[in-house]
Design a protein around this nucleic acid. Sequence first.
DNA 1: GGGGTCATGTAATAGGTTACATGATTCT
DNA 2: AGAATCATGTAACCTATTACATGACCCC
Lengths: 230, 230
Amino acid sequence: MTDSKRPLTNPLALAILVLLYERPMHPYEMATTLRERRKESSIRLNYGSLYAVIKQLLREKFIAVREILKEGKHPAKTVYELRSLGEAELIDWMRELVSSPAKEYPMFEAAISLLPVLPPEEVIELLEIRIGLLEKTIDQIDEEELKCREMKLPRLFSLESEYYKAMTLAEYEFSKDLLSDLKRDAGRLRSGWTEMRMQHLAAKAGSNEASVPAVPKNQKRKESHERKNS
Amino acid sequence: MTDSKRPLTNPLALAILVLLYERPMHPYEMATTLRERRKESSIRLNYGSLYAVIKQLLREKFIAVREILKEGKHPAKTVYELRSLGEAELIDWMRELVSSPAKEYPMFEAAISLLPVLPPEEVIELLEIRIGLLEKTIDQIDEEELKCREMKLPRLFSLESEYYKAMTLAEYEFSKDLLSDLKRDAGRLRSGWTEMRMQHLAAKAGSNEASVPAVPKNQKRKESHERKNS
DNA sequence: GGGGTCATGTAATAGGTTACATGATTCT
DNA sequence: AGAATCATGTAACCTATTACATGACCCC
């Protein structure tokens, strides 16, 4: 909300702040709690970076060591607690995340914007695979949902999977539309496709096309510089 | 497709491979070409890492130096070209991106899964802001779309923005539904909300609630360990 | 002469991932 | 006895970002 450049961007940091907002905890407990609540499915969590992230949170004074519990010959448990600065950061961060959509860059969008490198016929096949996999994903979400309802968990606990389902469905619809457009349409959607591929194809084939610029035949790939190995 | 662990994951690397698939280029030209085609809007591109990524591509033998052009006292231009290994990687990478949806982790999904840290009344306000911003975004996309149609650009060139619009719309619908559910519903959606916040509230207030476990009153935050500063 | 843009890069740092190392306890 | 789990962490590595540095050319 206020200042867009937060010291930490790792979502694991956000998750830890939330846990410590509930109660003090030691690192291992954080990991098991997050696992228990299955947060990995909606938050990118890498438990290997747990101690690293805690170090960062300490550095920023968002958290502090509350106590170090030593029992017998067990390794000592370092219990952390939230500091007021960390609480402020947590609330501010959450407010920003909820109120302000941030442009994110899914790789599928990148792929679509580079689609002409693949021949349209292949894209059709690939999209069919994708659509099948998306259907599977949606079925899985539905199953999970059913389980939750059977266990009579309040809806609040599965809001994130509702969101995930909505987004997956939207991608599914988009993919299906794109596929059928590609299949039906020989001119409109495909117009420009081969033209965009042409330069490469021309370079490869040594081409007799008129519209190909600036790539003399003696500069064809494959023959020129392709050395064996270092 | 084949092996999931690619040596490079940076989308800038993918973009460079595509450019070199079209024709050999020097780094600065790559940057300007990508800017010209406005790829930043659909691919996360950080031009500062350009030379670093090129170094990686060289290391992987995906690309090679084709020639070094020296004109007068200008800095020499190092022209790169795609090697067959790089072409294979590009095609394989693209196939995977199109055919296989990868679970990605938008921050909004993370926020939703942690929503109970915020009081429901505040979430309502924040969602209203979000919805407004999403509307703005959609209007912008529509304007862009109109421009493209006026310039009679083939649809192929704006597929990625169609995708972006579809996803943004889905998020918009989800947010609106969530908002109205939150506003209407006093029991169903909200049930569990305060309970999830309770532990924290209890800790803060010293609480007389029965169901609060394991946090003795002498361990309240604020008073106990919050030191002034280092 | 000054600003923009062409064109190169390096250096420092932060960020994150992976793998490894340790050792006690508890369950089978 | 052996496996899983509890609980700590470090070290190496790689990636990525940021900021800086250089210098010529071109147009006003």
